[in-house]
Every structure is written in C-alpha cells, then in structure tokens.
Design a protein around this nucleic acid. Structure first.
Lengths: 188, 188
DNA sequence: CTTGCTTATGCAACAAGTTGCATAGCAAGA
DNA sequence: TCTTGCTATGCAACTTGTTGCATAAGCAAG
C-alpha cells in the first residue's frame, strides 16, 4: 500500500488541492491513514507525471490560487488494480505497549500520568467520531436504495464504525492498564 | 520512539543475539512492534557504538557462533529517560480501511474475499494470543507478591490483554464490514 | 552428495517518511 | 504598522524502513 491509493480514494470522494487533502488527512481519511503535507505534495507530483490525476488551476479570491486535482482514467485503473490485489494484514506499532513493558524496569507507577494522557486522547477522538457519525449518518436510511452513491456513504460509515470500535477498545484497555499500574504504587 | 527502545526492553527481559531478537519480533514484542532482521542488526551496531549494549561472543556447537547482547548502564539510562518523555498517541495506518472506502468506486462485493482473509488472519492471531496467555499466565497469582519480577510478568500480561482485545475488536468489526458488503451483492 | 532448511550476520540500494525551512498573499487585531 | 495566523505550495536534508543479495556452518532427507 502506498499513499497514492489513499489519495486516489480521497480525490474520488471529492476532488481537491494538496492543501485540502492534507486537511482531510488530519480528519476523516487521517483516522486510519496519516500523511504530512510533504508526502501529499510529492505524491501528487508523481501521480501527475504518471497521468493518474488531472490538474486544474483554480484562482481564488482572498487567498492564493490552488491546484485542484481530480482522478484521471489511469489513476482509476491503478486503484482498481490495487483493490483486486490482496494485501497483508497490517502490522501494528504501539509505542505505548513498549513503554508499558519497559515500565517493569523503572517505576511502573510513573507511567500512570502518561497512560492517563493517552486515555484522554482516545476519549477525545471517540467524541469526535461520535459527533461525526451523528452529523453525517444520523438518518436511518439503511433500508433505502443501493446505488453507487449509497455504497460510498455506507462504506464510509462502516469505516467510521471501525474507528469508534477501536477507540472504545483502547479506552477499556487503558483502564485495565491503569488498574494494573495502580497496583504497583508504593504503599504509604 | 525508535526501534532502539523496543530492543532495550526486549534485552532487559532477556539478553540475546540479533537473530534471537528478530524472532522475538515475530512474536511477543512483534505483536505491537514489527522489525526486520536488517533493522535490528543495524540498530544493535549503533547501540554498541553508543555504549548502550554490551556484546559477548558465544561459541555454539552445531551452529554458528552468536553475539549475545545485553543492556549496559548507558542503555538503561536511555530507556529510563525515554520512559519519562511523553509520546504522541499513535497514528494508525489501516490499508484495509482505505480499500473499504475505495470499494465504493469499484465492485464492493469483490472485497468480500479479501475481508474474509483478514478476518481469518485476526482469528488466527487471537488463537495464538489466547494460547500464549494460557501457557504463560494461567496460574492466578494476582494476589501474590509485588516484586520487580512480578511487575514484569503483570505488565507483559496487560499488554497481551491489549492484543487480545484488539483482535476481538477487529473480528467483530470485520463481521460488521462483511455484513455491509453483502448488502451490495448483485441480486440474481 | 546434492538439495533444502535453520541458525547467524551483514552490505548495498532503494523507497518512504520526517523535519526544518522558505515563500507568498491576504485578513484581523494590537 | 507590525505581528500573528491561515491558505497554499514547495525544496533539501535527514532518518527509517524495505528488499535483494551474500556468506557460512551444520543438519536431515533422498
């Protein structure tokens, strides 16, 4: 998987500039795929060279012009081909878990503040996801028509439900970790 | 966070060679932090240069000699200092989620096989985690003494519980995704 | 006695991701 | 007017991570 595919999906959902993409990667897409503006601008340049995207200069009032990108046929073909390729189940990378195991060789209770901070971050994210769900998917149209636009919405919702499940799981686990760490507090 | 810290924790739990570390990164530590043998050998070389680890040539019968690494004082200090530094709540990277949203622009039901494969992979991992828990943490010593070795075990268990919770969450979510994708199957 | 597997270590090249910096227009407020 | 902040794009340098290959010893199977 490369960042290109995430960009293609995002541009198919809605054409936009590198800057707009960068902001989507801070929310929405960014919930499961992070990228900096640097990665995005470089990838867009490559994709333009390869004919995956079309560019259109859009003059704006009150702010600099932007280059609006949209997916070209070649890009769409590249996405389709990637969609049909199997991918490896992802490998996680949880610094916090390393810290927790490392805490055994330091003062375990010193980690409580840190774990608390992470718990707070996940609580905040959960709240944002739930607000987004309320905003975008509140109406119960689950018996409605199954056209292409409907698929887009339904699948976005399914991914969002994944984010919600993930955050809930993390909060519960961090509570478990906190309880464990508290058992190692020095007795007074 | 750098791979160095994961290596330090692993070596504190048990000194070993680069090769042994590489295998631990395929299980145990690897459940939440992946690394190839190349990364590990390079990191060990750096860490040796920086005085973070000590090396000992261990001759072996029936197989090539190995270099057994163990954590030096400087390495321990580096770990402690890292443990006391706050880290950013991790950013996820789920290729599958990109694919699911991308499926709206292709045939959504074509993704069923892929999601099924991932579900199977997570089921397998869950089984391995549960077997490991049974093997290593079966005896209920949760009221026992709270010495340093006890902390190591307890914290390893807490991390493993996180892995278990994660896999359970993923399986449930993938079932949800599958149900969604099935709704888009073309009617016969 | 050759082929393939496991242990054990490593180089070199390449691809991907991060960080710092630069530019530039415009708006709002001190 | 000067600073701060937002939109908008980008270069250069650096750090990480991946992939392919190489070596070398011993073991087991055919």
């Amino acid at each position: 998987m490369a960042i290109e595919h995430a960009i293609l999906v995002s541009l198919l959902e809605q054409p936009g500039s590198g800057y707009e993409l960068a902001r989507r990667f801070e929310r929405s897409i960014g919930y499961f795929w992070t990228a900096t503006h640097q990665q995005i601008y470089r990838a867009l340049k490559r994709m333009e060279t390869d004919g995956w995207v079309d560019v259109r200069e859009v003059p704006q009032r009150g702010r600099p012009d932007k280059k609006e990108y949209s997916v070209a046929d070649l890009g769409r073909a590249a996405l389709t081909s990637w969609l049909h390729d199997p991918i490896e189940p992802e490998s996680v990378r949880h610094d916090l878990a390393v810290k927790i195991r490392g805490a055994a060789f330091d003062d375990p209770s010193a980690l409580i503040r840190e774990v608390d901070r992470h718990r707070q971050a996940h609580t905040d994210r959960l709240a944002r996801y739930l607000a987004g769900e309320e905003r975008d998917f509140a109406d119960r149209t689950d018996g409605g028509p199954y056209g292409p636009a409907h698929a887009e919405r339904e699948l976005q919702h399914a991914v969002l439900r994944g984010g919600i499940a993930y955050e809930r799981m993390m909060i519960a686990w961090l509570d478990d970790v906190l309880a464990t760490l508290h058992r190692f507090r020095p007795e007074r």
